[in-house]
Design a binder for these strands. Structure first.
Lengths: 144, 144
DNA sequence: AAACTGCGTTGTACTATACAACTACTTTGA
DNA sequence: TCAAAGTAGTTGTATAGTACAACGCAGTTT
């Protein structure tokens, strides 16, 4: 079934090509918030706060990596820690006002860059592309 | 136009999620050939040899980065350098027999992983997904 | 010939990452 | 009840990938 193979090969190559560039592009656009920091902060914002361990599990990162990333975000004043009164081992992490503001700015400008890149796509194509990506990643997540 | 915004946001998030994981997944699957090395070697194979400068330009990497990656690939015996007879500053890079063989193995196993992940997609969806990704990346490339 | 340009390497620094060892706290079960 | 086992997070250490700057060498231009 050669056609199917070709499609899979293209998806493989194009996703790889994207992955190669994403970090660098993110860093160029937002020196103050790396791709990883951005993602973690966005998750905190989205979840209304969570634990470091949850972040590690969700993003398949080592807890030490998360610990250091959070330490950096805290140093920048973007995140605050609240010790869980029920379990003193646990720190519940929340974006600060400043963190939420910076996140909103970065999100807006990232979204704008994407908008520009996708400006000449019609809505049906955008919609299908979005759902394909979501479907693809959902499969991936269940394997990680 | 809220629907359009939603699609763009999803694409943004899903591509970012993918990017976050791609390196780690690649490293787990193929400790002998990182995502970057793999990509560079694949390009050499595809182009039937090229210069370090060409690789740097094509992948938006610094020449020093390429220089070190190529040095590593050479040390592994995957790449050989041939000095251009017309210009002694230039080294034309080629995969070795061993490099081409390893590349083929890695490509095959990466492709298989993708095949499995995409096994329950029908052909029309695969085809559309592939062309959306290609279209997306083509836009991106012209901006880099 | 001297100045300029282009290719590649090396020195240095930084970020993201993992793994292992550790501290501090909580839960369990005999 | 209290010791053993488990869990949350930090820190030490090591590695990969990356950029920028300074350099050396080989061609090219004036």
């Amino acid at each position: 079934m050669p056609h199917r193979d070709d499609s899979v090969e293209t998806i493989h190559q194009e996703l790889t090509a994207f992955a190669r560039r994403a970090r660098a592009t993110a860093a160029r656009m937002h020196p103050e918030l790396s791709l990883v920091s951005y993602t973690l902060l966005a998750h905190l914002d989205d979840q209304q706060g969570c634990r470091a361990t949850d972040l590690a599990a969700h993003y398949c990162l080592d807890k030490s990596t998360v610990s250091r990333q959070i330490a950096a975000l805290e140093k920048l004043g973007f995140v605050e820690r609240r010790v869980d009164p029920d379990d003193h081992r646990v720190q519940v992490l929340h974006p600060t006002e400043k963190g939420a503001q910076t996140l909103a700015n970065v999100t807006a400008s990232r979204r704008q860059a994407f908008q520009e890149r996708l400006a000449d796509w019609d809505e049906a194509d955008l919609d299908r592309f979005a759902s394909y990506l979501a479907r693809y990643n959902a499969t991936q997540e269940s394997r990680d």
